[in-house]
Design a protein around this nucleic acid. Sequence first.
DNA 1: ATGAAAGCGCTAACAT
DNA 2: ATGTTAGCGCTTTCAT
Lengths: 351, 351
Amino acid sequence: MSPRSVRTVAREKPDIRTVASLARVSIATVSRTINGSSAVSDKLSKRVWQAIEQLNYFPNTHARSLVSGRSRIVGIIVEDITNPFFPELIASFEEFAVAQGYEVLVSTGKIENAAQIERIVRRMLERKVEGVAVLTFGSEESVLDQLAMHGIPMVLAEFQVDNPQVRTLAIDYATGIREAVEHLVALGHRKIGYLAGPHTLHSAGTRLHCFQDSTAACGLKIGPDWIVEADHTLNGGVRGMQQLLRLKNRPTAVVCSNDMTAIGVLHAAHQAKLSVPEELSVVGLDDIAFTQYTLPPLTTIGLSRHALGRAAFEALYQQAEPNESSASKPNYIVSTKLVLRESTAPPPAGR
Amino acid sequence: MSPRSVRTVAREKPDIRTVASLARVSIATVSRTINGSSAVSDKLSKRVWQAIEQLNYFPNTHARSLVSGRSRIVGIIVEDITNPFFPELIASFEEFAVAQGYEVLVSTGKIENAAQIERIVRRMLERKVEGVAVLTFGSEESVLDQLAMHGIPMVLAEFQVDNPQVRTLAIDYATGIREAVEHLVALGHRKIGYLAGPHTLHSAGTRLHCFQDSTAACGLKIGPDWIVEADHTLNGGVRGMQQLLRLKNRPTAVVCSNDMTAIGVLHAAHQAKLSVPEELSVVGLDDIAFTQYTLPPLTTIGLSRHALGRAAFEALYQQAEPNESSASKPNYIVSTKLVLRESTAPPPAGR
DNA sequence: ATGAAAGCGCTAACAT
DNA sequence: ATGTTAGCGCTTTCAT
């Protein structure tokens, strides 16, 4: 009653030997044709591919990984998949990884205590990832340290690390933020507030500095009260705006460290019966899909998740495939640019 | 200059043999202790665990999979990770999978042509997943067929398939939708519209039927014009509402097949200078995070992604681990319930 | 209860 | 250019 006794041989799951015997070659030749590792004559190669087709064969990745030491798996760590910024990023990363025959391991929980860090690192190590994109935009340095200790190549956003195994993805926030500030100034705004991200985030720091540089370059004086730290959440944006609203001399426009914050601002303005953009201009950052549908649609600084995901995978790929030409260590740059929608307008006249 | 000549043996990556010799047992005993497969004496077991700790050893999953035929990987297929419904679902699925020592493969692209289906199935097969959750809420029957052909256990939402390898997750839409309709009726609405999902989606069909049953049960007459098919996107909701707006005798309340559609309705109402909820009541379905922050916050029918993700993994787990008690085939049920927020109110008086 | 040994399906070093 | 063969690190008979 064994399967063999009932089914035809052809229905058994084919293995490299099945292919070899059907193509009348050795298993080594099959392996070589599949991997293109060393020249195989056209004649044999054709026979092998034919046999592969006919049998619907594909290699066992576990066997492959075991012997070659290469898993063809890359990891991506994000902190909160619920934040609409990340799904698009993951989708793009996955798209490019799969296109190159890689599989991706997604880790998405909060990273708070040692046990969680340990679990994430362990997952990556167990499955023998060939590289990890750490796109938390935070400062999970212990994750980095542990992964580095095990010699795993990594790619980070916006955080220079002095380690040849760590690639950095540079995001050119400066351009987009400058465009936003200049846009506001051109509209007539002189008093521009800023709702920052948490100071624990490197990227939030960079964004803030860009804002300060841009306003300074425009000759604007930004009172310290006008810069308040929020936390990149909607509620944080609401609270931050409420704080700004309490000021006697308050800004006529607000730039936010991310879109969620800006949507919170919209919300707070609505509660306070302040109409946007007539009485208050708002600019977000990231250009998440939702900003098109807020009321009013949000003017925001766009950062392409697609480009970022691609750059992240490519940086890893380049380290994993040493034969790929460039032995250099390029600094991948992702650009940003202002996306005009309807949340910005000239400041109220009577001020 | 080999690593061996420089580093101590202890720094080499430990092997099952390393553990065995440190614990002074055979590799078989190490394997047995780790897997709890067969009784190992306390004395040896303790020595083995000690060695494992000391060496920081963990098994090579690829070697394990190769020999055992078990990958401890499960797949999850969703159609659009950009739809905020799915990230939470994935996060929950992942959470439970990782807790049981499983890894998860996420496939997230659009599923449109044969080539894409082929690629998804191939990915799952190559990595030897032990089960796949197909949570597209669509009708990707070819994916199902192909996976079934290869004997992969599956779990689906809302789509009865006559195959013992396919588990179905029942979602009790009826309760939540009935609550929503009754809520609207209690508020005084008699004319209730419905913005359906695409007819190609099984779940959309179920949702629509529940709406029709509920309104009928309340003795309401729903004109055929009041039910329009949208597509579960924001823009679809906008267009659907615009269509309703053109009616001479139009509904005073609209129930939507999902939250995205409902947010589109909010948008269309705003454009038409119709205030919600004073002039129009709106109810969504899903309770995605964003509904708390729309203007006004959306009353919606909540469907727990956490419960759904958990049920999906559990259904798979149960099939993968035959030793786990229940040999039965339970129908996992995920409940729904009305979440009251601010988009519903009594209909305008003067109608 | 424990150990020895035979592979799992493949790649890569070594022959030819 | 092609074939032979030795493992990769583990689980699992089969002995004992």
